[in-house]
């Protein structure tokens, strides 16, 4: 179990209908690649976030498969459009079975 995993997301609070908004997400996670060795020369087992999804009102924006080549504290930036007022739901899936979630509301005027 990775410790101190904390998702951070930047989403504008308001938008106009169908406006393109840029979303930035970051989650603190060591993303242990499974390639590194500890000081005794033993391989440290892989422990990464292997999937990230972003949904808006249940509709998919981005579904990403992540591999060990993604840096520590995986950062993702992408564009979404919002057809109506609603909520973004972000989900990160850990190798160890943990699921981390964050939600952000957007008001459409």
């Amino acid at each position: 179990m990775a410790e101190n995993v904390k998702p951070r997301v930047r989403v504008p609070k308001t938008a106009t209908k169908d406006e393109v908004i840029t979303i930035k997400t970051l989650i603190s996670h060591p993303m242990e690649s499974g390639q590194r060795k500890d000081k005794d020369g033993n391989l440290i087992p892989r422990s990464i976030i292997n999937r990230f999804t972003a949904e808006f009102n249940g509709q998919m924006v981005l579904d990403t498969t992540l591999e060990p080549a993604i840096s520590t504290n995986p950062y993702l930036e992408f564009d979404a459009k919002v057809p109506e007022t609603g909520e973004f739901k972000f989900t990160w899936y850990d190798d160890d079975g943990s699921v981390y979630e964050d939600a952000q509301k957007v008001e459409v005027s």
């Binding site: 808006f56 998919m60 981005l62 579904d63 498969t65 591999e67 992408f78 979404a80 057809p83």
Partner: peptide
């Protein structure tokens, strides 16, 4: 490295 799958609301 990664696979990005874009959904209907990807701008």
């Amino acid at each position: 490295v990664a696979t990005f799958n874009f959904g209907p609301l990807a701008a």
